[in-house]
Design a protein around this nucleic acid. Structure first.
Lengths: 261, 261
DNA sequence: GCAGTTTTCTGATCTAGACCAACTGGCCAT
DNA sequence: ATGGCCAGTTGGTCTAGATCAGAAAACTGC
């Protein structure tokens, strides 16, 4: 605990110029919260929780809704995040995710001096839904292997992934320890399949349903969707992923030669 | 105007199973709003506005805050968007943005049967801020050409871009009609410079400041940031962009060979 | 017509709570 | 040590407004 001050703090009202419009309360609150965040320090290893909402209300002499506006603002900026019904936390710095580096999750995370962990939610053979069947060049309802995992950085759950594999490519892959092994490593070493081309599709959405629950994300918070379709050295589609990231957890990067060059 | 019904509508309360938890009001409201959106039709050419908030409150017999929760939800999903103090609108379908296609904005938009337009906000030579100087391999404060534009699809402002160019690469480029010409076309035809490599950096943020104002975006709404650094055929950095998109306006895509292959 | 002005409408912001369900932590029994 | 139970805490959800400032529409005068 750092300097516990229970004294209410009056929000300063800065006017950039005397005649200008006054800053909205939530904006001043936002700055006050930033100061609070700084004062709490940002040691990455342990999730650093903000005080309870009602305590912050008292401390800043404001209402729940205004406080929430300010918190939501900072959440959108990626400075803080929220765990459903558990509170607000200071967001660690973003993971640098190079889409074309071809690194497995654990390698990527550990190369940035962070600790990675994976939780296997399910691994089974299921009938392919239409959109999955289309991606994998299969007919709707034909069998596909489905692997659902949750991945965490320094203990914080940041990614929910669903993989769908063509079963003719990877017979028996579900029997491996999928929480420990990288899928691409298994592809290469057990099936001699290398990922030679990737098609990405990126879009923003919100959490809700299984992805939100698995990450303890409050329904409605921003999510980064990353869909990828992998092809092997023969150009054959072998699997696809649907990734849902906490939006504040990553920063995407890539370097390539554009076609119109 | 479609079927104008001023009768309040009772939100149905569906319980999936008798013993289960009831769906929150905002979630049922969300579904009702989706139905409303469908009933309004989604003709792409004209921005289709939802009724005023107070009217929707009356129609659905709810409160402002609950309505806003539902609207915010749909906004996050990209189904609707908001113009600051102007109302809520049905979101057109997303523009498919292939990061590596090397297409200029107008070509990209028109190839998808949409109409593109560009507004030039400013074009001048300014001292380079530190982060720009670093990207362009210049020293802080040295002169760079700065071009700020707003781009619209079918009349809807969706993108705010700031370009910073190395002045030694493009002398006199600010004298061209920058609202009509594609920068990359000018590079190629007037300066014989082709973009041979692009470094992208993608992240989610929120609107605020000049970008938000230029797009009429309410401060705090989600934005997709795309930063790119362009190199010419000799590997020399020639310029960089900072793009801020309305998050619901685009879907990013790319296809490439990963390095770890 | 057209430009400047006024009015109206509308979303943005804020107040002051209440109630509920999920989560947490402590206590107790096995 | 482990697991279940209980109560307090806390965030999620919702009610019922008020006020303000920007945007759009209506209006006015040249």
């Amino acid at each position: 605990m750092s300097a516990p001050r229970t004294q209410p703090i009056a929000l300063e009202c800065h006017h950039s110029t005397p005649g200008s419009v006054s800053t909205p309360t939530w904006h001043r609150l936002r700055d006050a919260l930033l100061a609070l965040i700084d004062s709490l320090g940002n040691n990455r290893k342990r999730p650093c929780r903000l005080p309870a909402e009602r305590e912050m209300i008292a401390r800043f002499s404001t209402t729940r809704i205004t406080l929430r506006d300010a918190l939501t603002q900072l959440e959108g900026e990626g400075r803080i995040y929220r765990e459903n019904r558990r509170g607000w936390f200071i967001a660690p710095s973003r993971l640098h995710y190079d889409l074309l580096a071809g690194l497995a999750f654990h390698d990527m995370v550990e190369s940035q001096q962070r600790q990675a962990s994976t939780l296997l939610l399910s691994a089974s053979t299921v009938p392919a839904p239409l959109h999955i069947a289309r991606r994998l060049w299969l007919s709707e309802g034909s069998a596909v292997q489905r692997i659902v995992r949750v991945r965490a950085i320094d203990g914080r759950r940041v990614l929910y992934v669903e993989h769908h594999l063509r079963p003719d490519c990877f017979p028996g892959i579900l029997d491996f320890d999928l929480a420990q092994h990288s899928l691409t490593a298994l592809y290469r070493h057990e099936y001699s399949i290398r990922i030679a081309r990737v098609d990405y599709e990126l879009g923003s959405t919100i959490f809700g349903g299984p992805a939100g629950e698995a990450l303890h994300a409050t329904p409605g918070t921003a999510a980064q969707r990353i869909t990828r379709i992998n092809r092997d050295q023969n150009g054959r589609v072998v699997d696809c992923d649907d990734e849902y990231w906490r939006h504040d957890a990553i920063e995407l990067a890539l370097s390539a030669v554009p076609r119109g060059g």
